[in-house]
């Protein structure tokens, strides 16, 4: 498929696109544009994205508000938007079951510890959420940035083998993180990695794909925290084969998210 031709025409690429890593709603710390359902769906239409799996932005703020905000968006666009329940380790009254009853659009959990007091990802306060995902065989999208976080995530993946972990950002931040991802993938088969990262260089995706295999990569953009077209282009115009691109853009996600 000639992705370059489609991109240069500003047209969708000829792949089904499932974005497993999307944010929803405003963030306080910097300006976001088009961060609610209508803005997301508008961009999806322009870029030919078929499904976005969203977590409420501002994970450091009111967990009820941000999860309810995502639920309302999914109510309006049930075929376009799915959601992760953003967990908060400081509130014992946050019951994941409530949200899965609230909306059939919720498909998993999101853990973003670095903005929640920078607790370790394997801190005991998070365990009940991993246990819930393990019990229900749910995906857990985990923000990882540095090697310590990648290692903590893999410890949880080993402890909760029925939960299906998504390692956000594919540890593309630095070499120690990448090495931790590569080693962890050898031990845990219940982890995939997503492609989201703002500052990317050409060759990074091909390198990590060579190390962990394209069966273990899913397409994520971090949209609307930032733009998604550049990540889409980065994957579509990579040196990977069409078959690999198809796996990354949708086939792996369908399997992992049970869509």
């Amino acid at each position: 498929m000639d992705c370059t031709k489609s991109i240069f025409a500003g047209k969708p690429v000829d792949f089904e696109v499932i974005d497993v890593h999307v944010h929803y709603g405003d963030a306080g710390t910097y300006q976001l544009c088009g961060s609610e359902a209508e803005g997301i769906v508008h961009t999806m239409g322009r870029l030919g994205m078929d499904l976005c799996c969203c977590c409420g932005n501002s994970a450091a703020s009111d967990w009820y508000y941000i999860n309810e905000n995502v639920a309302k968006g999914m109510d309006r666009y049930p075929d376009k938007l799915k959601g992760y329940v953003v967990v908060n380790p400081f509130y014992e009254d946050l019951d994941p079951a409530f949200w899965f009853e609230r909306s059939p659009g919720f498909i998993g959990l999101k853990v973003l510890a670095c903005v929640q007091g920078d607790l370790p990802l394997d801190h005991p306060r998070y365990h009940r959420f991993y246990e819930y995902a393990d019990r229900h065989n749910l995906p857990v999208l985990v923000h990882t940035w540095i090697a310590r976080e990648v290692n903590e995530m893999f410890r949880m993946a080993q402890k909760y083998p029925n939960a299906r972990f998504i390692c956000a950002h594919s540890a593309l931040t630095n070499r120690p993180a990448k090495e931790a991802l590569i080693e962890g993938m050898k031990i845990c088969d219940n982890v995939v990695a997503d492609t989201a990262i703002s500052e990317i260089y050409d060759g990074a995706l091909e390198w990590i794909a060579d190390k962990i295999g394209t069966d273990r990569l899913v397409y994520g953009s971090d949209f609307i925290t930032f733009e998604c077209s550049h990540i889409l282009g980065r994957v579509a115009m990579s040196k990977l084969t069409d078959d690999d691109k198809e796996k990354i853009f949708s086939r792996n996600a369908k399997q992992w998210l049970k869509l």
Partner: peptide, 18 residues
């Protein structure tokens, strides 16, 4: 920003701009 930045990402950003 080549080679530390991504050319594929940079062109897609402009091509897909509204």
């Amino acid at each position: 920003g080549l080679p530390m930045g991504s050319a594929t990402a940079a062109v897609a950003l402009i091509c897909y701009a509204e």
